[in-house]
Design a protein around this nucleic acid. Structure first.
Lengths: 155, 155
DNA sequence: TACTTAGTTCTGCAAATTCAGAACCATGTA
DNA sequence: TACATGGTTCTGAATTTGCAGAACTAAGTA
């Protein structure tokens, strides 16, 4: 039985980051696992370590890990001769994730467009505001690549 | 008893937009109310109209409306001589909302910064990736005003 | 004063979520 | 073959959520 632990300060960071992740609707245990993989000194943790550090059941651990893997937020590696898997946060892909996240705006603006099309002409101010929102969302969406470029340039 | 209704097409838009709002963790009924106030031909609806169109109970209607008011997403007006309130989506403030939403990134990046500070020097690649994320989040955050300006200019 | 209107608040149920515990399985090892 | 390891899956219990229904309140009206 490994007895790897994290410090009190780290525990608090796991909680804080965990709560942040919860806002996106993921279940608490999965959020803690995700947070732990970011906060922990080791970037790669085994099933057992995760379970013990967070003090949750095997089923909760299994469920959380698989959820995160499905959501493409966690991956695992194996080591030659070991059956254990080493789980780690998939943060190297953060740019792809962020682009995907930002691009969700596109789907909203498409929906808002559809809505605005069916709105009566009479509610002019409202429609105009909606049109402005759509215009801005589309603009931002189109600007994303440029945003990355300017960031790269500035570094 | 008023018998104001919405079309089938509108109902579907309310559902779609409602589901979109649900992603942010708000309760279903409140999301439907919000969506209705965007989709409906009338931009201002009474308590009774909302309740009847969405076919929900008074308590659900009351709860949803008050939640939305607290979240600053809905406001109401009154008309002289009438006791009823007319509720409407507070979309005219969309810029403020959007800036606030985007600025939430700042809070995450602050937290990530705190985390990165306590990480061991040994996990170099991980720390660097984290630092890059933070850098990008801060950059985007700083760029928000400029983004609005460029959008205005382009219009 | 009694009644209507416009909503609020309380009670409680039904459904969904989340997780622990135990049994189970698959692979490797002695 | 027996046992250990690294999980997965099933069951069910404890919360939590979301809302209906009914009672209630506050303000205006006849």
């Amino acid at each position: 039985m490994t007895e790897f632990k994290i410090t009190q300060a780290q525990k608090e960071l796991v909680e804080k980051l965990g709560v942040y992740y919860e806002k996106s609707g993921m279940q608490p245990a999965a959020c803690r696992v995700m947070a732990l993989l970011i906060v922990s000194d080791q970037t790669e943790l085994t099933f057992e370590e995760i379970q013990q550090i967070l003090n949750i059941s095997k089923s909760a651990t299994s469920g959380a890990i698989n959820l995160l893997i499905t959501a493409n937020r966690v991956e695992y590696i194996t080591r030659p001769g070991e059956r254990k898997r080493y789980f780690r946060a998939k943060i190297l892909n953060w740019k792809v994730d962020m682009i995907q996240n930002m691009s969700q705006m596109t789907s909203v603006s498409a929906l808002l467009k559809e809505i605005n099309k069916q709105r009566p002409k009479s509610s002019k101010e409202f429609n105009n505001t909606l049109a402005e929102m759509i215009s801005f969302l589309e603009f931002v969406n189109a600007e994303i690549p440029a945003l990355f470029k300017r960031w790269e340039a500035k570094k």
